[in-house]
Simulated scan of single mutants.
Amino acid sequence: MKVTMVVVLYKLKPEESKTFRTLTQIMNSTSNPFKDIELILYDNSPDKHDFTPPQHEGIHMTYYHDPRNLGIATAYNHAWSVAKGNHSQWLLLLDHDTELTQEYFHSILSLDNIPENVVAVVPKINSENTMISPVYSHSLRPLKDERPTPGIQDKPVMAINSGAFVSVQFLNEINGFNEDFALDYLDHWLFYKIYEKNRKVYLVDVELEHELSVLDYSRVSLQRYQSILDSEVNFYQNFKKDLLPKYRTQLAKRFLKQMLTVKNKEIAMQTLKRFFSL
């Protein structure tokens, strides 16, 4: 099985990325699971890092620097183009802050007889002792609901980008990644498209740790929060339209909570502005 992998970096040397460090440990292990893998390190940092890709059996690694910092959608589309060119069946998406394991790679790279309607394979993702992915996508507060169990997901789910194993043929069908979601809500859009096209997601019974800073307002800048709001509004206005009324109500509740608990009140005011714009 030919696979292309992409790790998106930002303001980090490859060696400083948790994803790349744990990936390197796996590549250097005696039970290296990789065969016929194309690995792209896509660096959105302002300055190019002095990095020479090491050589490892079963894996070809390239470093690509893009100072424009156009987000992860552009990086993923570059990797999709490479995957098409080298006839990969699957594209593996990775952020720079996911802790990878041998168990995870052995699970996804050894999958056989995947049903044709399954176009994405995902692991369980934990952040700070909470399973954050995948979640059922019928709710605006999925972390309050039950979580999916391993196997084919008949009910629509959403999974975060990092760790997702996506069919290149399906990406060809939907013309790659939507660059209107340059950074935020790209995962929501992708998994929405999967179920819109009557395809399925398979959840493997392995867990990965991932740092998700957007769960904590103290670690989110005003500019970053504005970007998240832009993408939220786009998604619920133009795609998941059935949840738009509930989303508007959620914005009102979020504003009140932010006024009480978030130190930077500009974040709350941005929420209020979006509420009145809908």
Rank of each mutant, 00 (worst) to 15 (best):
A79H: 11
H78A: 10
L109T: 07
P53Y: 03
H78C: 11
E103F: 02
A83H: 05
N44A: 01
Q55M: 15
D43Q: 03
D50F: 01
D43L: 02
T62L: 06
F51H: 02
N44Q: 00
L41P: 00
H56L: 12
E103A: 13
H65T: 14
P54W: 12
A79R: 10
Y76M: 12
S88I: 00
D66C: 13
L70K: 15
P67W: 15
H78W: 11
W80C: 11
Y64N: 08
H60T: 08
R68S: 15
E99M: 13
T52C: 03
I40D: 00
N69E: 14
L70T: 13
M61C: 07
F105R: 05
M61A: 04
Y76C: 12
Y76K: 12
Q102M: 14
T98K: 09
A83V: 09
L109S: 06
Q89N: 14
H65E: 09
Y42W: 01
D43G: 04
L91M: 04
H49D: 06
A79W: 07
N69R: 15
V82E: 08
H65A: 10
Y63K: 00
H56D: 06
V82T: 11
E99P: 05
H49L: 01
H49P: 07
L109I: 08
A75N: 10
A73N: 11
L94I: 07
Q102V: 12
L100D: 06
L92N: 00
H56E: 08
H65N: 10
F51C: 02
I108S: 09
D43H: 03
L41I: 08
L93K: 08
L100Y: 06
D43P: 05
D43Y: 03
L91Q: 04
W80Y: 15
A73G: 14
P53E: 05
H78D: 12
H96C: 07
H60A: 12
T74Q: 14
L94D: 05
A75P: 07
H87F: 12
H60G: 08
T62G: 02
D97A: 07
W90M: 01
D43V: 03
T74R: 14
L41R: 05
H60L: 11
Y104T: 01
W80A: 11
D50A: 03
F51N: 01
Y63P: 03
Y42G: 01
F105D: 02
H106L: 09
D50T: 02
Q55S: 15
A79D: 06
S81Y: 05
S107K: 06
W90S: 02
P54S: 10
H56S: 10
H60C: 07
M61T: 10
Y63N: 00
H96L: 07
P53H: 08
H106F: 09
L70Y: 13
P54H: 12
H78F: 14
S45T: 01
I72H: 13
T52I: 09
Y104W: 07
Q102L: 15
I108W: 07
